[in-house]
Amino acid sequence: MTRVLVTGSSGFIAGHLVERLRRDGHLVRAAGRRATPADEFVEADLRDAEQCRRAVEGTDVVFALAANMGGIGWTHHAPAQILRDNLLISTHTVEAARAAGVSTLVYASSACVYPRYLQNHPDSPALREDMVFPADPDMSYGWEKLTGELLCETYRDTYGMDVKVARLHTVYGPGAAYAGPRAKALMALCAKVAAVEGDVGTIEVWGDGSQTRSFCHVDDCVEGLVRLAASDVTTPVNIGSDERVTIAEAVRLIADAAGKDITMGFAPDRPVGPLGRSSDNTRCRELLGWAPGVPLAEGIRGTYRWVAAHMAAERSRADV
């Protein structure tokens, strides 16, 4: 891995991955709509095949992270746009990598590929990689990611490409969106707690707080991606935490990090997604000799500090 391309440079996972790869001594090109500190930046709309080809050309390893994505608010707001954009991005990236003779491509898939019928209770079993079929992914984003996985498998079988598939599970951490429809639940909840003035207050929580998730810190996500790229693995691998909590428990961890007494006002009419989702890390441990391990309470402390600091800075600028 000497010449590495990371697509989706405006995304927060990509930004952390670029930093890690450069620390490891690789020559890193970032491609996307917005620059991130890298050895080289290529501004490219990867929905366009020619721009995608130029971005990939001359690299040895590609981390395909670019996607039109966001939290539950965004996936409900723009399903057709998400499906169209991501099908184009994934198809053009994999084909460009084949044409350029890239040695390894790591495709960022999602836990959204797992069937909804396996996630309809807070105590639903942890999701194993072999549970994908019969298919019933979560919304259009999940269908596109599952199609992307099949594309990768087909290119591997047809052209002998070294393509890895990472199924990412609800990644959070400093740099992630915390406001607007693209913010995912944990980041949005951090922002709601940070917006409470003083030490006591109430925040709105979508659903009834009983839905469960496992949240993966971005440092763990990046470590998993790097390990997967260097492995000889040919099957999809979950990269996610197996520490499951309810949303209400996550709020309490955020409140503890903030030092605030927070009351939750529930909004059962708002979208909540699957009622129970967590990662089974058996395959990850077996094939990569490792699994995500940042404790949620620890990850939330650093993430909350970052969100609170950025929100304070925004208020200061607004007051000028």
Rank of each mutant, 00 (worst) to 15 (best):
K184A: 12
N238G: 07
Y178S: 07
K260P: 06
R305E: 09
T212L: 14
L118C: 08
D319F: 09
W290T: 05
L189G: 04
R20Q: 07
D130W: 05
A177R: 06
Q211H: 00
G259I: 01
N68V: 14
A297F: 11
A35R: 11
C284M: 15
N281G: 06
G240Y: 12
P134Q: 08
V251E: 03
V272I: 07
C112P: 09
P122T: 15
V196C: 15
V171T: 01
R47W: 09
V205Q: 02
V165H: 03
M1K: 12
R54C: 05
R33Q: 08
A166H: 01
A179N: 06
Y107H: 10
T303D: 11
V222H: 12
V222D: 11
R84I: 08
C284H: 13
M139K: 08
N120C: 10
A67K: 02
D232P: 03
R244S: 14
A64F: 10
D85T: 03
P181D: 03
P295D: 04
M187T: 03
E57N: 11
V18S: 00
E204M: 12
L287F: 06
C112V: 08
A108C: 11
G273H: 00
S110F: 10
G173F: 02
D232S: 06
G209E: 06
R116W: 10
C216R: 09
E153V: 14
H16A: 12
Y117C: 11
H77C: 13
D138V: 04
D280K: 04
K260H: 07
A318H: 15
L21T: 08
V42S: 04
G240L: 10
D220E: 09
R20H: 09
S241G: 07
V245E: 08
G142P: 01
G224C: 03
E286C: 11
D208F: 08
V28M: 13
T91L: 07
L65F: 14
V94E: 15
S109P: 04
T104N: 10
V307R: 10
F133H: 13
A64K: 15
D242A: 10
G142N: 00
C152P: 01
R167Q: 08
G265R: 12
S110Q: 13
A176G: 12
R20E: 13
E298W: 13
E223A: 09
L5A: 03
D242E: 05
D280T: 02
R182W: 03
Y304N: 14
P122H: 14
L186C: 03
I239R: 10
R156C: 03
